[in-house]
Structure formats: structure tokens, C-alpha cells
Amino acid sequence: MSVYLPIAELSVNVFVLLGLGLGVGILSGMFGVGGGFLMTPMLIFLGIPPAIAVGTEANQILASSTSGVLGYWRRGGVDVKMGLLLMAGGLVGSSFGVLLFTLLKNIGQIDFFIKIVYVLLLFSVASMMLIESYFDGRRARLLSSAGKPSVRGGKRKRSSWTRLLPFKTRFRTSRLYTSALLPLAIGSVVGVLAAMLGIGGGFVMIPAMIYILRMPPHTVTGTSLFQIIFVTANATFLQAGFNHAVDIVLAMLLVVGGVVGAQLGVRWGQKIDAIHFRLLLALIVLCVCFRLFWELVATPGELLSVTELR
């Protein structure tokens, strides 16, 4: 059974889309990643124009982050003040991202740009995960042999440059006292990525929150999701307004699959061996990365690409 996507203007099998949403949803539920960085390349592989894949994915992430943040909100895992500062940066960043996106679209380089940035991003994510799972695996073996309690982190090394920044303010929920410029800057960088790549940016945001802002673990994910809602809402709105790049039908089909998948993923994630599955995820990401990279380096069968002009 195929469904006609009104904005992408093509017919795609419904079950392929539901299955894709389900698959990426399972992975995101298992590993707590947003899944946008996997979904957008997959949509491009399906034949959805890259620009529409990006715009629609922002819309889908908005839905999945909303369902995700509510749980953290109830448990007090959202640092609203920090979230709002990240959001302020994110709104600026994502608006700038959509602007840049429109510019690149007009000069005909958006498809290339999306692919090359994805290749770099996916490669760094995959190598980060591989390194992390290697060290986690070693630590697990060490712990089981020595029987010692976890010594994770140890004494935190303070980075000196963040303390020199002005506009210091107190974040009660996160028990932090740091400069307001930091979340603004981090938010805007991630906002640019989110708007241009169709991702929530959690996998860039969360490491930045942990290592630069030094936020405690219990507020990191919730606050990240909280600001993603505003950034993806802004990106959706602007992408639809300026680039006609949001396909509601496609987004809703992905949301249905994604929501069910995320629930299954959370349930299965508690039973599985996390280290090995993170290795698996890293390999999946690497495969997607190489597939995209191949599209950029392989001599294309057709040197001339044709697109309809509106």
C-alpha cells in the first residue's frame, strides 16, 4: 500500500515508512539518542529530496522530544533556566541555519552540503561510540576482576577558561554557578546544526552539557530535550515558511512508527548488554556514513542532475 506524500510529491510504501520509524525509534529508545541523524540519511536513501528530508525530520523530532520531555519534567529533570538560555541561543542558531540553508538551496549546493556534513558528523559520532564502548568494556572487565566499586570520573578537572567568562548566574536545578554566555553559545551552534541537518542535536548537546557546562547527569537529558522542542519548532516553522520543506503526512507516519519503536526500544534496552549494542549502533552509524560518503566519491552514473523548478 503506497501513500502519496503531498509536499515531497512522490508515492512511498506506507509500511516502509512505518518500519523506518519503528526501526529508528527502537534504536533511539534503546540508546537514548534522538535518531534524527539516522532518519534523515535513510529518508534521502528512500528518494525523498534532501531538503524535504531535513525539514520533515525537524517536525518529527519535535513530536518525539515532546513525548520524551514530559517524563523528565515530572521527575524534575528539566533545568528550566538553563533550558531557556540554551533555547535562546538555539532560536538564533536555527534561524541562521534556515537562512544559510535557503542560501545554499538557491545556489544548488544544498544536497552536497547536507551529505558532506552528515559524513563528518556520523563519522565522529561512530568513532566516539566505538572508543567509549571499548573503554566501558575494559572497565567492566577490570571491575569484575578486581571487585572494586566504580571510580568513574574521580576528581573533576576544572577547565579554567569557562570561569573567566562574565555574566555569571546561578542554576538552581543543576546546582551550578556559571556564565550565561556558555549555554547561549552552545545553543546557537547546535541550533545551526539542527536546522540544517534535520537533527535534534542531542548527541552534540549532551557531551557539551557534561564536559563544558558540567551539568549533573540527572538534568542533562531532560534539559536537552526541553530546548530541542523549541529549536525544532522554530526550524519546522521556518523551513515550512521559506523552503516549503515540511511534509506533514511523512512526518506523522514517521512519528507513529517512532513512538511505538521508542517504547519497544526502552523495554528491550533494559534487558540487553549495553556495551555490545552500543558497538552495534556504532557499526550501523558507520555503514550509513560510508554509504553517504560513497555517494560523494563514486563517479556518478549520471553526471547531470535534473530538478524541477517551482
Partner: peptide, 29 residues
């Protein structure tokens, strides 16, 4: 709708996604 009122369409896409998120949370989480 998306062609003629693109910003209103964008707004609707945002509202729809928020509603879908809330609904999903009610149903599953």
C-alpha cells in the same frame, strides 16, 4: 495550504507535532 499559507502551515505542523507528542506520552509512557 502549504503553498499558499506556508507560515500558517508551518505553525500547524508545529501544533500537530506537539499534540502527537502529548498523545504518545499519554498512550505509552
Amino acid at each position: 495550504f502549504a503553498e499558499q499559507f506556508s507560515f500558517l502551515y508551518g505553525f500547524c505542523a508545529v501544533v500537530l507535532a506537539l499534540a502527537a507528542g502529548f498523545l504518545a506520552n499519554r498512550l505509552f509512557v
